[in-house]
Amino acid sequence: MPGLLRGVARTAVVAGTATAVSNRVSRRQQGRWAQQAPPPPSLVDTPPLPPSAPLTDDMNDKIDQLKRLGELKAQGVLTEGEFADQKRRILSD
């Protein structure tokens, strides 16, 4: 019986030590990651979103132009570069 208790005690000590070491390593690693990562954005600092406005005629025109542009690209009339240039031109107006 004393041998059994000694074995159980040794197992408990080893398991306790392993748990303590594992927890310490985890805390150190989390501290390092926290130093490397930028702080998460604060919800308090974010400005409120403006109320959603209905699409204007100008926005509807842009959407229609982009749809037509996409159709021309799908038909093979426009190359990828031409499509990107035209899309940039439409969206920058």
Rank of each mutant, 00 (worst) to 15 (best):
residue 59 M to K: 08
residue 70 G to D: 04
residue 46 T to D: 10
residue 67 K to L: 07
residue 93 D to T: 07
residue 69 L to A: 03
residue 44 V to S: 07
residue 12 A to L: 08
residue 36 Q to W: 08
residue 48 P to Q: 11
residue 33 W to G: 10
residue 3 G to C: 05
residue 64 D to Y: 03
residue 54 P to Y: 03
residue 50 P to F: 02
residue 46 T to A: 14
residue 2 P to D: 08
residue 3 G to D: 06
residue 68 R to P: 00
residue 39 P to S: 13
residue 22 S to M: 15
residue 16 G to R: 09
residue 70 G to W: 02
residue 89 R to A: 14
residue 1 M to A: 07
residue 76 G to C: 08
residue 1 M to N: 04
residue 37 A to Q: 15
residue 79 T to R: 02
residue 50 P to A: 01
residue 63 I to A: 06
residue 44 V to F: 04
residue 32 R to A: 10
residue 6 R to H: 03
residue 31 G to N: 12
residue 90 I to F: 00
residue 49 L to E: 04
residue 35 Q to L: 11
residue 57 D to M: 05
residue 15 A to G: 08
residue 6 R to I: 13
residue 70 G to T: 00
residue 11 T to I: 11
residue 60 N to E: 07
residue 26 S to G: 13
residue 42 S to P: 00
residue 85 D to V: 13
residue 76 G to H: 05
residue 7 G to N: 12
residue 75 Q to S: 04
residue 7 G to P: 05
residue 16 G to L: 14
residue 78 L to N: 00
residue 31 G to H: 09
residue 40 P to N: 11
residue 20 A to W: 14
residue 89 R to V: 06
residue 85 D to R: 11
residue 42 S to T: 08
residue 55 L to R: 08
residue 5 L to F: 12
residue 23 N to K: 10
residue 48 P to A: 08
residue 13 V to M: 15
residue 90 I to D: 01
residue 55 L to W: 04
residue 74 A to V: 02
residue 61 D to Y: 04
residue 91 L to I: 04
residue 67 K to V: 06
residue 76 G to Y: 04
residue 38 P to N: 14
residue 24 R to H: 15
residue 92 S to Y: 02
residue 91 L to A: 02
residue 75 Q to V: 04
residue 81 G to M: 04
residue 60 N to L: 12
residue 15 A to I: 13
residue 48 P to E: 07
residue 46 T to P: 02
residue 32 R to N: 08
residue 64 D to S: 10
residue 82 E to L: 09
residue 34 A to T: 03
residue 53 A to D: 06
residue 73 K to W: 01
residue 44 V to L: 09
residue 4 L to C: 10
residue 65 Q to M: 11
residue 35 Q to M: 14
residue 59 M to V: 06
residue 40 P to Q: 13
residue 18 A to P: 03
residue 8 V to H: 02
residue 17 T to I: 13
residue 27 R to E: 03
residue 32 R to L: 11
residue 40 P to W: 07
residue 90 I to L: 02
residue 71 E to H: 00
residue 54 P to A: 13
residue 34 A to P: 01
residue 72 L to M: 02
residue 61 D to K: 05
residue 65 Q to H: 03
residue 56 T to S: 12
residue 74 A to W: 00
residue 49 L to M: 02
residue 28 R to F: 11
residue 90 I to R: 01
residue 81 G to C: 01
residue 45 D to V: 07
residue 27 R to Q: 06
residue 77 V to P: 01
residue 38 P to K: 14
residue 55 L to Y: 01
residue 33 W to Y: 11
residue 61 D to W: 05
residue 28 R to V: 09
residue 85 D to A: 14
residue 1 M to Q: 04
residue 15 A to Q: 10
residue 58 D to I: 09
residue 5 L to K: 10
residue 8 V to Q: 05
residue 6 R to E: 09
residue 7 G to F: 00
residue 49 L to W: 03
residue 74 A to M: 01
residue 25 V to Q: 05
residue 71 E to M: 08
residue 3 G to Y: 00
residue 32 R to Q: 06
residue 44 V to D: 05
residue 19 T to P: 02
residue 60 N to G: 05
residue 72 L to R: 01
residue 59 M to A: 06
residue 12 A to D: 11
residue 59 M to H: 09
residue 75 Q to I: 04
residue 49 L to Q: 03
residue 13 V to I: 15
residue 92 S to N: 02
